Computed example of a mutant assay.
Amino acid sequence: MTLKAWHKILIFLFAIVVFLRVTSNPAAERAYYSDDMNYPLVIAHQGGDEVWPGDTLFAYQNAAALGVDVLEMDIHISRDGVLVLMHDEKVDRTTDGTGEIESMTLAELKQLDAGYDWSLDEGQTFPFRGQGITVTTLEEVFQAFPEKHMTIEIKKSNASMVRPFCELIRKYEMQDKVLVASFYDDKIKEFRAECPEVATSSAKQETTVFVLLSKAFLSGYYSPKFLSLQVPEESGGITVVTEAFVRAAHARGLAVEVWTINDKETMQKLISWGVDGIMTDRPDILMELVGR
């Protein structure tokens, strides 16, 4: 190839780079992250799953009493179309029942003891058994905490829960209080189409792309459709969250919220790097650390 041909190729590549840089846009502003919020945000993972039975109204009541900034939860859909909170697709791990949530009606789910298998001493004691803690619906949480910010993760399901989810958000006017998350890119895409006014975090592929671009110092060319990067500190042997990663995200108008951090040393390090939120099973530890 001649020198002239190489010169043309370089000019062409440079033009592409300039075009991408000029046409790329940072994340659109949303009301979810308001100026009067305390940062870093204390995000109670499942309401604080190492303090109380997670994804229950009981946990959220206690987390709210602590003064946490954000309640995090996971949604599934029952056989009769009700959105309920639970981390797993089955009820086996946390309740006294068995079976898939999607195969059970709300009435059947409400008969279960949602505090049955919660234990901090590897099953020697079960302090919340028989305490009346039941499977919680999303509507119950909206009714109980209309002013609270929430991160709500759409879990795996056969039936789509996007439309009833969006309808519930609008019914309780939670559009500016809710940040929607999911590991599944198709579910996030479906939700954004149905409920475009509600903020979302990045799904799996979106997160991967941004992480790789940030490692190559090319994140400035990325136009995010999301508002937040909810990421682990490490994944698959790769360090995701670094001080440089946080700076790159902020340059694109993105918040960085790290999960699931339960030790004080790591919390302190992330705070010093300027992360916007920390998702934790121990909101009591994080609240003490930030002096609230």
Rank of each mutant, 00 (worst) to 15 (best):
H7I: 15
L13H: 11
V17H: 07
V17L: 15
V18Q: 04
F19G: 08
L20S: 05
V22E: 01
T23R: 10
P26Y: 04
D36L: 01
I43P: 00
A44I: 02
G47L: 01
D49N: 06
P53Q: 02
P53I: 03
G54D: 05
F58L: 05
Q61C: 05
G67F: 06
D69Y: 01
D69F: 06
L71N: 01
M73P: 06
D74Q: 09
G81R: 11
G81Y: 12
L83K: 00
M86D: 05
E89T: 13
D92R: 05
T95F: 02
D96E: 09
G99N: 12
E102S: 13
T105N: 10
L106D: 02
E108W: 08
L109Q: 08
Y116N: 03
Y116E: 03
W118P: 01
W118F: 15
L120G: 07
F126P: 01
Q131E: 14
T136S: 14
T137A: 06
Q143S: 08
Q143P: 03
F145R: 10
E147G: 06
E147W: 08
M150G: 10
E153T: 12
K155C: 00
S157K: 11
S160A: 05
R163K: 14
L168P: 02
Y172F: 07
E173S: 09
Q175R: 02
V178A: 13
L179N: 08
A181W: 00
I188H: 10
F191A: 06
T200Y: 13
K204F: 09
E206Y: 12
F210K: 00
L212H: 08
A216P: 04
Y222C: 01
K225P: 07
F226W: 14
V231K: 03
P232S: 09
E233A: 13
E234I: 02
G237L: 12
I238A: 15
V240D: 00
V246W: 08
R247D: 15
A248C: 10
A255W: 06
V256L: 08
V256R: 08
E257V: 03
V258D: 01
W259E: 03
W259K: 09
N262A: 02
K264T: 12
T266F: 09
T266N: 14
K269V: 13
W273Q: 15
V275M: 07
G277L: 06
R282E: 06
R282Y: 11
P283R: 09
I285S: 04
L286V: 11
L286M: 14
L289F: 06
G291D: 12
G291P: 04
G291V: 01
G291Q: 09
